[in-house]
Design a protein around this nucleic acid. Structure first.
Lengths: 234, 234
DNA sequence: GCAACTTCAAGAGCACCGCTCTCTCGTTTT
DNA sequence: AAAACGAGAGAGCGGTGCTCTTGAAGTTGC
């Protein structure tokens, strides 16, 4: 029953790894069922046949467990979007952007509670550690990649005075990414990214209740609008 | 010490009204300090010098108290936006829209926890009663009003194929509002509204942490973008 | 091989939560 | 004046995160 990677490990190490994995599996399931606010260490322990205090051998606090789940969520969303975008022909910028946008919504709808965990109201008293920023940036990097590739191919969105005025607001981010994307185009990219999340979160959080009936085609509309503004070639 | 509206009321009625008002005042403050998830009936009771069970004379449950606060928040945001928009010259459609958008963000930043309460991740196990929909609609009605006034004056946004495809998604809403706004323009309006909330919630929820430095000018950019798309005349 | 050390889980306990029940006592109504 | 009603108190239930102590089991060094 021992896997290949178990060589040279003491029974204690093995036991610890398995217990921690089982704990996370249950935690993930609970998170999907009751959401972050309803996630209870005691309930997880109960289901594992453990006493609540034993869980603290594995996670020093509820927040630490939450942090692990947040990191997982960011990375899962990130790789979901990445693998959707990588399938599209590199010069099909429109297709790459569309695939990414659709993948974002798809993951959010399939993982509503986890989406809420990372993009919803922050859990009070909980401060996300800095480790998460790299994982959180993955989706953004995909979109920025599409835009900078399109720019290199000579396709740029039209520049407006307001766009130039707002450029300094994202200048630092622009230098961090160093993706060869000028600030004003990055600003437009950030706005597009925000725009997609605005629709997704309204759908996931139920704000469209009796407003938008066919949320899927509405999302398609938004993608179309964003693409038009970004001026990506067909 | 009795006000004008107290005539003909028994001391019990007066006492009840005052206690309920004090209770709500403290609840509002706590909400602003610790957020919805941290709002505790016991803490409120403690501060009032009451025993926790006594609070249930006024609110049958924590959720009922939350519902009251949610309704208040919707209405306060609604009147905040309304009063900002009403100050602008009626034919200045761009100005009316801008004033509304700025008022939305202003209120959200001044009332972060209350904004999270109504536009953030839904409180688990809590279902918003139908009473709230009217209050929730107020902001949307302001924006729709600007758009339909502009349309009546002959200013319409450009129609795209995707816009027509998505029109049925908001057809029902269009008939409810009956604002003389054709579905495809309403769809664009809903998208604009979503777009503004996307930026605001990202700012309020801290998603722009080290990304967008000057969130105010970034918001101005978004307003400019939205206005361009809506084709409102200067 | 056994002693010393480390790790795990259990259990009791603390302070908090929402909520329910009963009981008392003062107000209101009849 | 008696009956009905209402507000608050208090005890209690089951739940939460988290801490501390204690005993058992695994691991390591002499």
């Amino acid at each position: 029953m021992t896997s290949a990677g178990d060589a040279g490990k003491t029974t204690r190490q093995l036991h610890r790894e398995r217990t921690e994995a089982e704990l996370l599996t249950i935690a993930r399931r609970h998170l999907g069922e009751v959401g972050a606010a309803g996630l209870s260490l005691r309930a997880i322990a109960r289901e594992m046949g453990l006493v609540s205090s034993a869980v603290y051998r594995y996670f020093p606090s509820r927040d630490a467990l939450l942090t692990t789940l947040i990191l997982e969520a960011y990375n899962e969303l990130g790789s979901h979007v990445e693998s959707a975008e990588i399938c599209v022909d590199r010069v099909n910028y429109r297709g790459r952007f569309t695939a990414s946008a659709l993948a974002m919504r798809e993951w959010a709808l399939d993982n509503r509670h986890r989406y809420a965990l990372i993009y919803g109201s922050p859990v009070p008293g909980y401060a996300a550690p800095t480790d998460t920023v790299a994982a959180a940036a993955r989706v953004g990097l995909v979109l920025v990649g599409v835009l900078s590739d399109a720019l290199r191919a000579g396709h740029a969105a039209t520049l407006t005075p307001a766009l130039e005025t707002a450029s300094p607001a994202v200048a630092e981010l622009s230098s961090i990414l160093a993706a060869g994307l000028p600030p004003h185009l990055l600003a437009l990219g950030v706005e597009s990214w925000t725009r997609l999340h605005g629709v997704i979160s309204f759908e996931v959080f139920g704000q469209y209740n009796r407003m938008v009936l066919d949320t899927e085609s509405f999302y398609a509309l938004v993608i179309d609008e964003v693409l038009s503004r970004l001026n990506l070639p067909r």
